[in-house]
Amino acid sequence: MVIQVRGVVLPERVERTFAIDGDRLRADPVPGADLVVDGGWLLPGLVDAHTHPGTESTDQPFSDEMLRKHLLGHRDAGVLLVRTPGSAARIPDWVDAAEDLPRVRSAGRWLATPGRFFPGFGRDVSEADLVAAAVEEARASSGWCKVIGDWRPDEPAVPLELLTAVVAAVHADGGRVAVHCQTGDGCRNAVLAGADSLEHGMHLDPGLIDRMAAQGTAYVPTLSVFGAGADRRRAEEPSARRDWWLAGWDGMLPNVAAAHEAGVTLLAGTDSFPTGTVASEIGWLLKAGLPAEAALGAASWSARSWLGLPGLVDGGPADLVAYDSDPTLDPSVLSRPARIILRGRVVA
């Protein structure tokens, strides 16, 4: 059955009517088709570009049941595309075939060299084996791999030469590399190695931002997970670790603003639970000083384009969220979607 939607499409701000035939949008209206959205504002499905569905703690095994629960939580909040940059296990094939779940772009298992992650939570590899493992994980996933580029501030980051070799090998194989980094050296090495995305980026040297823009390294700051812990950290007894963390946090919002000004692709990612909270990350991007359309795009059309999917265009995927008012003027409406359509099916 063909259904139709009508509303003001963002970011173009033009009223359009789309027929939905199967899982595709069609620009030509179909007389007599059921109009399931009539008015309001239409967005390409929201995107969480950094989320880890399937487990909630380092002592909890990855499970299909938890994965499905988390993905449904995303979907019910209008998040219709997720990128999981690293997991405790590879995302199973059944997810791609599930019509009621968001589309997933995965990066296989976290790749952790000795001393740089929770032991056994990802894929523990030696530095000698890291390049081959990165290519293997990218091939086994959606073309991505995720390297834990650093860990604690008193431990060395993955060496620049090794990370450069990882990026070169994965790129030569047609894949892309995400790097977890939260120390100055880790951020520096990820940028200089040419990583495709910088995850977290705490202690990022602002002098590297122009290089990120020039080479196309995206920035996924996951501000909401850091912001949620800032007050607790400030209340702790002074220590070198506390002061290091707070210094990194204090630089994140200015760095995000500078990255936007420089033309770096900024993406919204939550890295936290419960799932379906990307609206909170949009709020933090607004606090950092991003214009409303840029902050929203980081969790919708810009993120979808970066991950290889078009927005609301003829022939594009029928993944959209409708709101009663303009979310760039009233971001609170993001928590109240009027209609959610995934793969051409009305799910809410």
Rank of each mutant, 00 (worst) to 15 (best):
A213Q: 01
V179G: 03
A228G: 13
G120L: 02
A228L: 14
V125Y: 13
P102Q: 01
T164M: 03
A169H: 08
V177W: 09
V179C: 10
V177N: 13
G174M: 06
L101G: 05
H203M: 15
P206A: 05
Q215D: 04
T222M: 09
E161T: 11
A107M: 09
E155Q: 15
F117Q: 10
P114M: 03
W110S: 13
C187F: 00
H200T: 00
E155I: 10
Q215C: 02
D185W: 09
V177K: 10
D210G: 07
A132L: 09
Q215M: 07
S126K: 11
L111F: 04
E137L: 11
T164Y: 03
V166C: 06
F226C: 11
V179A: 08
G120Y: 02
G229A: 14
R105E: 14
G175Y: 14
S141F: 11
E155L: 14
A213P: 02
G120V: 06
D196G: 06
P159F: 06
V147Q: 00
S197A: 14
V158L: 02
G115C: 12
G207T: 02
D154P: 03
L223T: 13
T222A: 13
Y219C: 04
A133Q: 12
V179Q: 01
T113I: 08
A169I: 04
S126E: 09
